[in-house]
């Protein structure tokens, strides 16, 4: 029973107060920059993948600097995998909608109004696809990182037994 309590309160080590405060200031800015890259994917260099990686690096920075409870990370990993799967399903649905709604029946057909070139709201389904891919990549890379933390931890427990 006592062993179980120790298991529940197991944490990863945080860093010093300087690193913690700087990361608390920087992480929202990095996250906002990722959102900017994702939303302007059809106008400027970058896109869903790059924005997703930048957004995930904000989460990773917070986990590394502040430390975290491993039991909570396990539940977060489950939620992240669910988010990733839902985003992939939405992307597939977007592609099939192009197949169904257009007259010429093409996979990934652009069925929305394309607007004027250079505006933020233009390009039909391209910005929507960028946003979905950004969410998916953010969830996937965060879950890879959390899996790295958890996996080594489980290996340590097996050796201690």
């Amino acid at each position: 029973m006592k062993k179980n309590e120790n298991y529940n309160q197991e944490t990863t080590k945080g860093m010093t107060i300087v690193v913690k405060k700087i990361c608390q200031f920087m992480a929202p800015v990095i996250f906002l920059f990722g959102i900017y890259i994702t939303f302007h994917g059809h106008l400027t260099p970058g896109g869903g993948f790059t924005g997703g990686v930048i957004m995930a690096s904000a989460f990773i920075l917070q986990i590394l600097s502040n430390g975290s409870i491993l039991e909570r990370l396990r539940s977060e990993k489950w939620r992240l995998e669910l988010t990733e799967s839902i985003a992939i399903f939405c992307f597939l649905t977007l592609a099939v909608l192009g197949l169904v709604l257009t007259a010429y029946s093409v996979f990934f057909a652009n069925f929305l109004d394309r607007g004027t070139f250079g505006q933020l709201v233009s390009g039909g389904i391209i910005p929507i696809g960028n946003i979905i891919i950004g969410v998916e990549v953010c969830a996937a890379i965060s879950s890879i990182f959390i899996a790295l933390l958890i996996f080594k931890d489980e290996e340590d427990e097996e050796e201690s037994r």
Partner: peptide
């Protein structure tokens, strides 16, 4: 960003 963080861990 990402490679440095993962190698650090």
């Amino acid at each position: 960003g990402l490679t440095t963080l993962i190698y650090l861990v």
